[in-house]
């Protein structure tokens, strides 16, 4: 009797840890061990802490992107949005000398507004997300460059050092930016797995029409996913500013949308929608950043890490494809 209940419960709820996540965690352990053996400096706080700080913005934006992709959408405007949020916040820090909470609120609010634009256009314009966000990516970049004016933003004060790499950005050796990312990931994991609202996202990604007939307010939920992504991108932009030096140049955010999508996909979220986990995304972002860090520490060309990212995507998604095929034929 109890086994029957267990099976049913198993079918309704996805497993706490998917195979992909276990494999990813294993790969991470092996990679870190290999790097530790080849370059002893890798497993020191001085090397791991910057790695975690650098992972945070990608993983944080990845939480939103995971939810978007679970509903069957995609957001390629993240890079442009990061640019707008970070340049506005940086200008506010320089010009108005705003405090830390105000800067974070401003960045998050701007990110939310940009996400709302995407959400409204996609949910109510009934156009495929990739097209709309390609368009808004251009619009956001225009906005960002206009705010930049010409040249860079210089002399950014250390207000955001709380999120940075310095000693002020850590508690008990753990960087705040990474800690916040982990907390938000955990909250999103719980919300997606254990609440009706969270399950609705999966339902929409599985079959939007069926979800609508089952009483899910599809348009509103879809709008929400892009809003969440925008808000998280706003916070991630603060991390990006804190990571850098006191100068912000116009390349900020460039190519970040693809890095975020890569982390999500390596984490085992299906691009077709209906399946995915934020925990995998965090591990995926960590893996990508570990490779980038490892490649530089081994003294190889830093651009070589992109090749590994490509290979990881192929292997991660390919393994998933083969597993699905094996399950179906069984």
């Amino acid at each position: 009797m109890s086994t029957v209940t267990a099976t049913i419960r198993h079918r309704v709820l996805p497993p706490r840890l998917t195979g992909q996540e276990i494999v990813l965690a294993g790969v991470l352990v092996v990679l870190w061990a290999a790097l530790a053996v080849s370059t002893p400096a890798f497993l020191t706080a001085g090397s791991i802490q910057p790695l975690l700080v650098a992972t945070a913005p990608i993983a944080l934006a990845g939480v939103g992107m995971t939810i978007v992709i679970i509903t069957g959408g995609i957001d390629v405007s993240v890079g442009g949005a990061i640019m707008v949020c970070s340049v506005l916040t940086a200008k506010a820090l320089v010009g108005a000398e705003v405090s830390l909470p105000v800067a974070v609120l401003l960045s998050v609010a701007v990110g939310g507004a940009l996400g709302l634009v995407n959400g409204v256009l996609i949910a109510y314009g009934r156009v495929h997300a990739i097209i709309i966000t390609f368009g808004t990516a251009n619009l956001f970049m225009f906005l960002g460059l206009r705010i930049f004016g010409s040249g860079t933003v210089n002399g950014i004060p250390g207000t955001l050092a709380f999120f940075g790499r310095g000693a002020g950005g850590r508690t008990l050796g753990v960087p705040h930016a990474f800690l916040i990312t982990v907390l938000i990931t955990a909250a999103a994991w719980w919300y997606l797995r254990h609440t009706a609202g969270g399950r609705h996202f999966f339902a929409i990604g599985g079959d939007a029409q069926a979800a609508r007939l089952a009483g899910v307010r599809v348009q509103r939920r879809v709008l929400l996913t892009y809003l969440i992504t925008g808000l998280l991108v706003g916070l991630a932009s603060c991390f990006v500013i804190a990571q850098g030096t006191s100068t912000l140049d116009q390349s900020v955010g460039s190519g970040k949308e693809l890095a975020v999508i890569a982390a999500v996909v390596i984490g085992g979220t299906s691009i077709m929608g209906g399946r995915g986990s934020v925990l995998g995304t965090l591990l995926g972002a960590l893996l990508v950043q570990s490779v980038a860090s490892g490649v530089t520490q081994l003294g190889w060309r830093s651009q070589l890490s992109d090749l590994f990212v490509g290979v990881f995507i192929i292997v991660a998604v390919g393994a998933d494809l083969l597993r699905t095929r094996a399950r179906r034929s069984r």
């Binding site: 693809l258 996909v265 070589l304 992109d306 090749l307 990212v309 490509g310 995507i313 998604v317």
Partner: peptide, 14 residues
């Protein structure tokens, strides 16, 4: 989208 994202990274890097 996935396959060409992966090859985008790979070709760009090479």
């Amino acid at each position: 989208l996935i396959a060409t994202l992966a090859t985008y990274y790979a070709f760009k890097s090479i």
